[in-house]
Design a protein around this nucleic acid. Structure first.
Lengths: 139, 139
DNA sequence: TATTGTTATACTCTATAACTATA
DNA sequence: TATAGTTATAGAGTATAACAATA
């Protein structure tokens, strides 16, 4: 029986709320969270197929197909035929998509940094000490 | 120009990862997130009207009505007419709903609590001090 | 036959607009 | 006329099943 259930409860709620709040700042408000998540994955893993992306994002292929259709229409993703395998289409984030994701990350950091500036040095110090612990919990 | 950009960057990534990790270790599959969230709110605020609950959950009244219908069918919520105002129906979580939420929260917290048990008392103390700061940042 | 991507269809959660009953 | 709740309808995002093209 874990002894930290009450601490766990508070931490879980606080982390969920802050995570939601951070995600609210977006560079392109016409894009939903699944769109951002898929684009971010494509940025990380580079050229990939629909199936690979669907597996990465833990959704089905038809669902990811719909998301990719929308991203292609926005000009954030390019589909190109595979060189030797005619069944496959290779997906890749475009320069425009990459720029938009970069701007979004900057906006998120900016908002959070402004909140942190409003804290006292002692409070920032407490948060600094907590960050490695949060990282370790997430491992 | 905010001075806390580097702290912000670390905190943003740590919170996003931990949030994702906590969501992965969710054990309950019988209730969707909106159901769970609405029930949790009813548990916190006690007797309330549909409109109040919709505002609390930041959804529209028709959307919340649908969620409440389902919760009533499950036996987790009771609707009773208001004593003097015939337009109002008072909502309240049932004993069964309360029990179910308590069990679900325990399941969701189990993984995190086990991680926290593995920390030193000093580390848990650091996290305890950081939680109110995380809450304030999320406001 | 197996794999890749797509289309068809349905379910959930969300919204806006319109309706009923009551104040 | 205004308010509380409900019903009607529509738009995302998700799923499974069925299909076409290719290996």
């Amino acid at each position: 029986m874990p002894r930290s259930l009450s601490l766990s409860d508070e931490l879980r709620v606080a982390v969920a709320r802050l995570s939601r709040r951070i995600r609210q700042s977006r560079a392109d408000t016409t894009l939903s969270f699944p769109h951002y998540s898929a684009l971010g994955s494509m940025r990380m893993i580079g050229v990939c197929t629909l199936s690979e992306l669907a597996e990465q994002e833990q959704v089905t292929a038809p669902s990811m197909n719909r998301t990719v259709n929308s991203l292609v229409e926005h000009g954030y993703v390019a589909r190109t035929p595979h060189a030797s395998d005619g069944r496959k289409l290779m997906l890749e984030i475009t320069e425009s998509g990459d720029l938009m994701i970069e701007q979004t990350k900057r906006q998120r950091n900016l908002w959070l940094a402004e909140q942190l500036d409003a804290l006292t040095p002692a409070e920032r110090s407490t948060l600094s000490a907590a960050i490695p612990l949060l990282q370790r919990l997430a491992e």
